[in-house]
Computed example of a mutant assay.
Amino acid sequence: MKFLFLGDVVGRAGREGIADRLPGLIERYGFDFVVVNGENASHGRGLTEPHFNGIRAAGADIVTLGDHAFDQRDTISFIERETTLVRPINMAPGTPGRGAMFVEGRNGHRVLVVNALGRVFMGPADDPFRAVEAAIAACPLGEQADAIIVDFHTEATSEIQGMGHFLDGRASLVVGTHTHIPTADLRILKGGTALLADAGMCGDYDSVIGVDPDEPLNRFLTGIANGRFTPAEGEATLCGVAVETDPRTGLAVKVLPVRVGGVLAQALPEF
């Protein structure tokens, strides 16, 4: 199968980029499954229900979250009923929503999507390694699942690479989100798991990680907050990764960078 993962959607620019470009990517490359991280889609922090619905309407089969999962108050009211919205699995017990979802893709493929929070330079969270391992053990790759996608929302590249090696041979893709900067370490590990330290963002790169530069520069220069961070609203680059898997094992046989639109060098996933 072929699937697409896109990194953090940031603000209006990211939402418009998804709406404008994702349907065409799905049609052009025939992706069987699409995952989009939407944790910064609403004003740069969190995800409202209308914005979640917009990402789904553009073609996302699953939308994942991160450390800003509940920054928008109404997320608590709709996450329980949404079977295609996944928040980090290692949040505190009793947190609304689900940390893993097993769903059928548009061509009948069975896909497990797991979302987890890192702990290095991040807020409090339970052990992500054991939490993800438990979810995967309940739905093994090549048996119940045709593909397993792990979105590890973390600050440290060492932690995401550690997760990749921990799950090598047991997941189709382990990909980092959160920093908004696409990394160049895309590869397939020895056991057949595709790994990327950070997918990057779907947002305006004429910015400071998706934010209009004025306020970040003010804080860097003075150390004093002068206002809120405001998402930049120029043309977005959609950043992520495309993976092709072995139909027998669910492991990766091809992994390609995706960068479409905006100011970054373009990278189209020519299979």
Score class of each variant (00 low, 15 high):
N40F: 05
L251S: 02
M1E: 08
V241L: 12
L167G: 01
P50I: 02
P93F: 09
V34C: 07
L141A: 00
T245H: 10
G176A: 12
P140M: 09
N218F: 11
R21N: 15
F229R: 12
A267E: 14
P50N: 01
R12H: 09
G38P: 01
D198Q: 13
A267S: 14
D212W: 05
A171Y: 06
A116K: 03
D126V: 02
V114Q: 02
G210I: 01
D32M: 04
A265Y: 03
V111E: 06
D8T: 10
R98Q: 11
R130F: 09
G203Y: 00
F152W: 03
R98I: 07
G97C: 04
A116F: 07
F52Q: 01
P23Y: 09
Q161Y: 07
E82L: 10
C139G: 02
R98L: 07
L268Q: 10
Y29S: 04
P257I: 09
P213V: 06
F52Y: 15
P247C: 14
G200F: 01
P124H: 14
F271W: 15
D32S: 14
A171V: 04
E133M: 03
S158N: 03
I55A: 02
I188W: 08
N90R: 10
A92L: 11
G59F: 03
P88T: 04
N40C: 11
V260R: 13
V243G: 03
R12P: 00
S207F: 03
P216Q: 13
D214Y: 06
G162C: 04
P50H: 00
T177Y: 11
E235I: 08
G164K: 02
G250L: 07
R28I: 01
A242P: 03
F271H: 12
N115E: 11
G162D: 00
G262A: 11
I62P: 02
D212V: 05
